[in-house]
Write a protein that binds this DNA or RNA. Structure first.
Lengths: 240, 240
DNA sequence: GAATCTGTCAAACGCGTGTTTGAAACGATG
DNA sequence: CATCGTTTCAAACACGCGTTTGACAGATTC
């Protein structure tokens, strides 16, 4: 049989595997593990349906390979937390940068954002990959962001309160990703439309900073008179 | 054949239909339309797998019937917006009540909360029922809540800004519902654990009120000097 | 040049899903 | 009592999914 389509480049096998990974990354990012089908991925990759089993083993193994191949460098999170450049920024700049990068990764469709978009799908439709994703990406990022929030608030807040504030910020971004179908119907437009993205970023940032600064100011103002919570600044963070 | 199990009560047919609806409501609320199976629903209802087709037509029709049967009374939203009792409350009380009721409906498992929990699933995994749900429940509730936010902020904000603030509040609640699997792994506990629910409610309320009050104060303070945005208070809301 | 290896293919398989089917049982009706 | 209507049942069907299979083709090796 004629095989001109799939044999147009030398090492064809490498080409097929690469095409499968690329197609899978896009489709998993768009639909999630469950709704993405083997047949659709192979159609996009211009490959036979057996190719996934041949090259990767099964659908699960393909998904795991996609996660490995699309993962950012270990130090490269949304914030590049170990980056010298970001480490020395003032907390509010880091805060703004985090929101901007997070929104960007939720909205852009380029290959650099597949991993983040797959993680957004994992959050609401978990697979067996979620444990690793949480341990390797979500937890470190979230902890880094909590540190930023802590720098913003100054002392006086428990670890739990810091976490709740960080959650409140993150939730405002994920909402547009996860509930896009509702927002499209409520507002008759793409929640991440480029012309609106700047306003959305600005709103989330200002809303969150307003809340954090105000709560911090209230805490610092209230501290001298507050007796109901004994001083606990030397207590360790809430254990895992 | 012996039918002692299913014919234990007179009008057995009404009993079977009712049991199917009850089982379906629970399972759709727990898993969503897609992950709930006909076989599982019938198992829970102690009915034959053909019973759904016989009584309702198909799975879709069962789902629609569940939505109709579990819908709150037209005036009875989370906020009971047309209720005389809530209409006269000050905006901050209405705001707090909205958050409390919303959280309650996201966490409780009683039959009164099936509809809300199904809607939460619809938001992230839409079916053909989403259009009606948005028009009949989500839009009216969201608009009512935006009015509450507007009352809180006072004049000076566009409809879009009010909507963004309302979204920011709602997203903090839905986050715990939609990303429960992640939060369980991050914090090794149920995000809606009863002993934490009060703290979560308090945090979301205070965080949001702090943001709204601060943004409103800044807007009112900035108004006399701000010339970049010409007065637009007579402009209609952003058209749908 | 034959044997082996690698990679692809069309077809089929096994499974789980939602739906349909013909038989059966019970109650109601005349 | 025979007939009809209603409801339930076990079994089967159709479909889409992920995976497997044996055949095939091209490249490599000896």
């Amino acid at each position: 049989m004629s095989r001109s389509a799939t044999h147009e480049s030398a090492p064809a096998t490498a080409a097929t595997r690469t095409q499968l990974l690329a197609a899978a990354a896009e489709i998993f990012a768009e639909r999630g593990f469950r709704n993405a089908t083997v047949r659709e991925i192979c159609r996009h990759a211009n490959a036979n349906v057996a190719a996934i089993s041949y090259h990767f083993g099964d659908k699960n193994a393909l998904y795991a390979a996609v996660l490995r191949e699309t993962a950012p460098a270990p130090a490269g999170g949304p914030h590049a937390p170990d980056s010298q450049a970001t480490r020395t920024l003032p907390p509010e700049r880091k805060f703004r940068l985090f929101i901007r990068e997070f929104l960007k990764r939720m909205t852009e469709k380029g290959p650099n954002c597949h991993h983040s978009r797959i993680m957004a799908r994992e959050m609401i439709e978990p697979t067996q990959a979620l444990d690793d994703l949480v341990n390797e990406f979500i937890r470190p990022q979230h902890q880094w962001f909590q540190e930023v929030v802590r720098e913003l608030t100054g002392p006086g807040f428990t670890a739990e309160e810091i976490r709740l504030m960080a959650n409140s910020v993150v939730s405002q971004i994920l909402f547009y990703k996860h509930c896009g179908a509702v927002i499209e119907r409520l507002q008759h437009r793409d929640p991440f439309a480029p012309e609106r993205l700047h306003q959305l970023e600005r709103h989330i940032t200002e809303f969150s900073l307003a809340a954090i600064h105000t709560l911090a100011a209230a805490r610092h103002t209230a501290k001298p008179t507050r007796r109901r919570t004994p001083p606990k600044s030397t207590q360790p963070s809430t254990p895992r």
